[in-house]
């Protein structure tokens, strides 16, 4: 996966704003309503604002608890922006779209470019 992300991130883009590829990792615990909401919210936001230049990996810590340590996960759900650097962390079910966009440092793309 990482090789593919790397390849895709090297693709030349027309503008600097659209050049960035977002590698996102969402940590959840089980299929709780909150987890499901977070996954749905993230997919919606990415489709609207990062179409074609994102990758989402959902990690269920109940299945892989050892992964919580690496990304210093405390609160759940936590969204980690692995790329572009620097790494950023967002906690919560991602229901506040404005805060998610600010947190991910994504400017809504102008209609002309989409």
């Amino acid at each position: 996966m990482s090789a593919e992300s790397a390849r895709r991130s090297r693709k030349p883009r027309t503008t600097r704003a659209t050049a960035e590829f977002f590698d996102l990792r969402l940590y959840v615990a089980g299929q709780t309503p909150r987890s499901i909401a977070a996954v749905a919210n993230l997919k919606r936001i990415c489709e609207q604002h990062l179409e074609g230049r994102y990758r989402i990996e959902v990690i269920d810590l109940l299945e892989r608890p050892q992964l919580a340590r690496g990304d210093q996960i405390l609160a759940l759900p936590t969204l980690v922006r692995k790329l572009p650097v620097p790494i950023r962390k967002l906690v919560g079910d991602l229901s506040d779209t404005e805060r998610v966009l600010v947190g991910l440092d994504v400017r809504p793309r102008s209609p002309a470019k989409s």
């Binding site: 909401a37 810590l61 340590r69 996960i73 405390l74 967002l90 998610v100």
Partner: peptide
């Protein structure tokens, strides 16, 4: 184990709990 808490670096985007901490501890 070191649990890193970065002050003001975490954006809060909605409801959350500390299950991550529970899971780490239990593990």
């Amino acid at each position: 184990d070191y649990v890193q808490v970065e002050p003001n670096e975490i954006q809060e985007t909605g409801a959350y709990d500390l299950d991550g901490l529970f899971i780490r501890l239990e593990h």
